[in-house]
């Protein structure tokens, strides 16, 4: 239902999104039946494709040509997919979007080869673009995403971290790739440098809000909506914003202690969810997310007149209210 609503926001881009969808499948075409099956496994599980959408919308502020724009939209989605395949190995996750992960369906090594394969296909695809700057931005983004994940592992179960640590982490984990989607979409469409900057900053703010909402939903959604048990982030030791806002809560501290020893029962998980849901941490987290959205909307205001401005606003507002 929620995904339907998101799709309705960009019905006028549907034709081009369908092109991207087709290209994504073609990019993963392989002589190996297994690698093709494993690569498509996640892709067909139905992601929201928000990164390609941001590329397309941003490119509409310049000389839009889907044949050029797809050269960045497709690799960005592939890079995102590849990182998810490897993340599932790191997190030992069996389920994603309600489906078995590649590592669960096959094994860790198949997941590693599949992730590497998708990364390779992404980079091969992006070489259709000769612009050095595009490659530098994308490479920097890839390195920083990994740095974010390294920090995330370092920070696992560490309650003594501050909001700055959290924001730095989610910037690398999520915001950077959305920021790059907007920036690169604008660059390949030869947008004015000022427009590129506004779109880049818009992507950053929206990306920060997107991850905060994601972290909230991990506590407020049902297992069915998430396609995995609610509270999984905390069970894996990821200290997200709602938990940081509750870090003085004794029962939460005890829960984290037990989670780090791997001794949490199902009953304790449900109790922890109740504590978080009944606290004001969710409301405060929403407020922080909204602050980022306000900044994103300011960047939209600074953009030149274009029908896509409304779309950027709508997408930002949707992200602020999304329930999946």
């Amino acid at each position: 239902m929620e995904k339907m609503k998101l799709k309705m926001l960009y019905t006028d881009l549907k034709q081009d999104i369908d092109i991207i969808e087709k290209e994504l499948e073609e990019a993963l075409n392989s002589s190996s039946h297994l690698i093709y099956e494993a690569s498509l496994h996640l892709l067909q599980a139905g992601g929201k494709r928000i990164r390609p959408v941001f590329v397309l919308i941003s490119a509409k502020f310049g000389n839009y040509d889907i044949d050029r724009v797809k050269n960045i939209a497709v690799p960005l989605e592939l890079i995102h997919s590849a990182s998810l395949v490897h993340d599932d190995v790191i997190d030992n996750s069996d389920m994603r979007r309600g489906q078995h992960t590649v590592k669960a369906q096959w094994n860790n090594r198949v997941a590693m080869h599949t992730g590497d394969y998708i990364f390779a296909r992404a980079l091969e695809y992006v070489t259709k673009i000769e612009n050095k700057k595009v490659h530098q931005i994308l490479a920097h983004t890839m390195v920083e995403i990994v740095n974010g994940e390294v920090i995330q592992i370092e920070d696992k179960f560490r309650l003594h971290q501050n909001l700055k640590d959290y924001f730095r982490r989610i910037k690398r984990k999520t915001a950077l790739l959305i920021e790059s989607s907007c920036e690169l979409g604008a660059i390949v469409a030869d947008c004015d440098p000022k427009v590129v900057k506004n779109l880049k900053r818009y992507g950053y703010y929206v990306g920060m809000s997107y991850q905060i909402i994601d972290d909230i939903l991990d506590f407020t959604s049902t297992d069915k909506e998430l396609g995995k048990p609610a509270g999984s982030d905390l069970l894996q030791g990821n200290i997200t914003l709602p938990i940081l806002l509750l870090k003085d809560h004794q029962e939460i501290q005890q829960f984290i202690e037990r989670a780090s020893n791997g001794t949490v029962t199902e009953q304790e998980r449900l109790e922890m969810l109740q504590i978080v849901r009944n606290s004001d941490a969710i409301k405060k987290s929403m407020q922080i997310s909204n602050q980022y959205l306000v900044k994103a909307l300011k960047e939209v205001e600074a953009l030149p007149n274009n029908p896509m401005k409304k779309k950027l606003r709508d997408v930002a507002l949707f992200i602020g209210k999304r329930k999946f």
Binding site: H86, I90, D116, F119, M142, V143, V146, N147, E149
Partner: peptide, 11 residues
Amino acid sequence: LTVLSGDYYSG
């Protein structure tokens, strides 16, 4: 971290 080191070297 070995998973991430491979990804880091690739980046």
